[in-house]
Design a binder for these strands. Structure first.
Lengths: 116, 116
DNA sequence: TCGTTATTCAACCTTTTGGTTGAAGATGCG
DNA sequence: CGCATCTTCAACCAAAAGGTTGAATAACGA
């Protein structure tokens, strides 16, 4: 039921996949819509979604010809517990999160620029 | 100063490296001592330590001919914040951590058994 | 049924990863 | 100095990761 720490951490190690998770934090999305912001093929995104699903970080459900992707935040509990045991951090600060997200988006923007 | 989320998550995605971090949670260790429990070459462990150091998860300091490795728990703050933003989990529970660690050690024990 | 849209599959390519072995550098010891 | 010890380097290898393209499959709409 719960995926391995290996597969979860490996899934999180790719910036495209983290960006997908951040998108799904806002809303469930179909595959084509997930792919839209990225300068890579649909097939590549499909593979990324497969990696995320195998790590149980998302669930995919086909309805009609659309396949809806939704976040499974519970999958983060195991690695979160693992990590936190190495040091006690301040309680979660959402501002910190916004900052990290902004930094990541900035880093990706040069790549994204080659798309119209 | 802070390593990328990419390099941190990638470093955490390997069970050997997570086991090394768990060992260093107990005590600082020299490279040869870190390698001792593992059924792989010293060079391989040296590479793993390089990955951990590039992710700032450990620091290495040479004293005499020994190179001491010590945990840098602060490096986990960034990914921890990133992860926690996806769902609010219970406060850290050390028992959970012991359980995960035990499960991981059990998984590795068949491999480890081929060493004397 | 036909064409369009949504998604994946299959084959392929290049780069990275995780391991090996053997030799080379440093450092400490007698 | 000469030797043993600690660690890394270099070259190599197989497998996995991340991407591509083109064809296949599935479902809808007219």
């Amino acid at each position: 039921m719960t995926a391995s720490l290996d597969s979860i951490f490996a899934a999180l190690a790719d910036p495209t996949r983290r960006a997908i998770l951040a998108m799904l934090l806002e809303d469930d999305m179909a595959v084509t819509d997930v792919a839209e912001p990225f300068a890579m093929s649909l097939a590549a995104i499909s593979k990324h979604l497969g990696v995320l699903e195998r790590a149980n970080l998302i669930a995919q459900e086909k309805r009609g010809r659309l396949k809806w992707c939704k976040l499974e935040p519970a999958a983060l509990k195991a690695p979160s517990v693992w990590m936190q045991s190495f040091g006690q951090f301040d309680p979660v600060n959402l501002d910190d999160f916004e900052r990290f997200l902004a930094a990541e988006i900035k880093l990706r923007s040069s790549d994204a620029a080659q798309e119209s």
